[in-house]
Simulated scan of single mutants.
Amino acid sequence: MDLILPYLTPANIVTYLAAVSFIAFAAFGIDKARAENGARRTSEADLLFFALIGGTLGAYAGRALFRHKTRKQPFSSRLHGIALFQIAAAVILLVLPD
């Protein structure tokens, strides 16, 4: 753990989250284009994985902009669950004393 802690700076965390969100956003756009063209699709598991590892904002932005997977169940419920879990984890980490 001592090897990781020096890299967990606010700037590095923000950079990581921005990069993963961009990847998630792009994955939704690519999957939408593939769906329209009848090409091989990105799996829902992969799209949810990008959200799970920190790309939730990009996933929601991609859903909204590309109007992709907005009504699909259980995908939507799982994405909302990931977002709620991340919010709860962030609150716990911010509230817990050092």
Score class of each variant (00 low, 15 high):
1 M>S: 06
2 D>H: 14
2 D>F: 08
2 D>R: 13
3 L>R: 15
3 L>E: 09
4 I>K: 11
4 I>W: 07
5 L>T: 15
5 L>N: 09
6 P>K: 14
6 P>Q: 06
7 Y>G: 07
7 Y>P: 06
8 L>D: 04
8 L>K: 15
9 T>C: 08
9 T>N: 04
10 P>K: 00
11 A>S: 06
11 A>C: 01
12 N>C: 06
12 N>R: 06
12 N>D: 05
13 I>T: 15
13 I>E: 05
14 V>M: 12
14 V>W: 09
15 T>I: 08
16 Y>F: 13
16 Y>I: 05
16 Y>S: 08
17 L>R: 09
17 L>G: 06
18 A>F: 06
20 V>C: 01
20 V>N: 07
20 V>I: 15
20 V>M: 13
21 S>W: 04
21 S>P: 11
22 F>I: 14
23 I>H: 06
24 A>I: 01
25 F>Q: 04
27 A>K: 03
27 A>L: 15
27 A>N: 00
30 I>P: 03
31 D>H: 03
32 K>T: 10
32 K>I: 05
32 K>V: 02
32 K>E: 09
35 A>P: 02
35 A>L: 10
35 A>W: 08
35 A>I: 08
36 E>W: 00
37 N>R: 15
38 G>V: 11
38 G>L: 12
39 A>H: 12
40 R>C: 00
41 R>V: 07
43 S>K: 03
44 E>A: 04
44 E>K: 02
45 A>G: 09
46 D>A: 15
49 F>Y: 03
49 F>W: 14
49 F>P: 00
50 F>V: 06
51 A>F: 04
52 L>I: 05
52 L>Q: 09
52 L>C: 13
52 L>D: 08
53 I>A: 07
53 I>H: 11
53 I>T: 10
55 G>Y: 05
55 G>D: 02
55 G>E: 06
56 T>E: 06
57 L>A: 13
58 G>T: 09
59 A>H: 05
59 A>C: 09
59 A>L: 07
60 Y>D: 00
64 A>I: 05
64 A>E: 11
64 A>H: 04
65 L>A: 10
65 L>V: 13
65 L>S: 05
66 F>N: 08
66 F>R: 02
66 F>D: 03
66 F>W: 12
66 F>K: 10
67 R>A: 06
67 R>P: 00
67 R>E: 00
67 R>V: 02
68 H>P: 01
69 K>Y: 05
70 T>N: 07
70 T>L: 12
71 R>C: 04
72 K>T: 14
72 K>S: 00
72 K>I: 02
73 Q>K: 10
74 P>T: 11
74 P>I: 13
75 F>I: 11
75 F>T: 05
77 S>L: 08
77 S>A: 11
79 L>N: 11
79 L>D: 04
79 L>M: 01
80 H>A: 14
81 G>R: 07
83 A>S: 10
83 A>R: 12
85 F>K: 01
85 F>H: 00
86 Q>S: 09
87 I>V: 15
88 A>G: 03
88 A>S: 10
89 A>W: 07
90 A>F: 10
90 A>E: 06
90 A>V: 01
91 V>T: 14
91 V>E: 10
91 V>W: 08
92 I>N: 02
92 I>F: 14
93 L>S: 12
94 L>E: 09
96 L>W: 15
96 L>Q: 15
97 P>V: 09
97 P>Y: 11
98 D>S: 15
98 D>I: 03
